[in-house]
Design a protein around this nucleic acid. Structure first.
Lengths: 138, 138
DNA sequence: ATCGTATGGTCTACGTAAGAGACCATATCC
DNA sequence: GGATATGGTCTCTTACGTAGACCATACGAT
């Protein structure tokens, strides 16, 4: 009797489990390539902020005060580079810049919402597990 | 005429957009608290590897060769602490250790699968966008 | 006229987090 | 007796993120 997989979802992941992340061009794992970007600490939060509509640089910074301007710039650049966000400059004085989600970026909202829902549902259990773990350790 | 939201999903994110990540205990944003952990570079990959069933430490390391033992240990510890993975020690000589997903961890496979599906679907478009961006820059 | 504020960033100095690899004790195989 | 495997920990170096100064310009208030 062989080991049963925990879930039929396992087969969905199989191609990517041992796929190297490195290697220039197409040799990199497509899933890790994309997921690494989404994991980049500020990415999802900025995408969620853009979900309500176009936002200006300083508006984003006010909404997420604990990001540094440097990282906000970098995060937005990478989102733009990946075709997830669009950057529009208006020739006012001083120039104002608006960031918005592209259709590709909007399609990302669905999976993020699933993750947010899971986080909401699981948060209590996770916090309880942490407390158990830390207490048993002490 | 006010600005229309890009998607009704936006309202799902609204509570978390300006929620501080810091603050000990319950003052931290539950969603950022959980999502930051998932974004931790190796977390999802290890969870995906565990989706097929229990795996030993060295099996995981062989499957994901470009993680350092140090980070593998740390990632597994944090997953265990959060109640996502379970650690079982068998009293062989030398002792062997098995890691497996808890029910909570298995419930995480669904949202991850959504993200993986999005990554598969979007990878081509993203790579094209990157090339455009880099060329226009040069 | 001058000071404060706002625009969207860039640049530098610093602290923390991740990566590479040596090391450990033990036991089994050749 | 030497190699290999077990699951880690420890140290050293390098990469990443943060904090905050700085820039040119223009507007409103004093």
């Amino acid at each position: 009797m062989t080991r049963e997989p925990e879930s039929n979802l396992a087969t969905r992941f199989a191609p990517y489990l041992s796929y190297p992340a490195d290697g220039a061009g197409p040799s990199a794992c497509p899933v890790r390539d994309v997921l690494d970007r989404l994991g980049e600490k500020w990415t999802t939060l900025i995408v969620m902020n853009l979900s309500e509509g176009p936002r200006r640089f300083s508006a984003l910074h006010r909404s997420v005060p604990d990001i540094s301007k440097r990282m906000l710039t970098q995060t937005l650049r990478l989102l733009e580079r990946d075709g997830i966000a669009a950057r529009t400059v208006f020739p006012t004085k001083p120039p104002s810049v608006e960031y918005s989600l592209t259709p590709l970026g909007q399609s990302l909202l669905e999976p993020i919402a699933q993750l947010v829902a899971w986080a909401e549902d699981s948060h209590d259990r996770i916090r309880a597990a942490r407390q158990d773990f830390d207490q048993t350790l002490t």
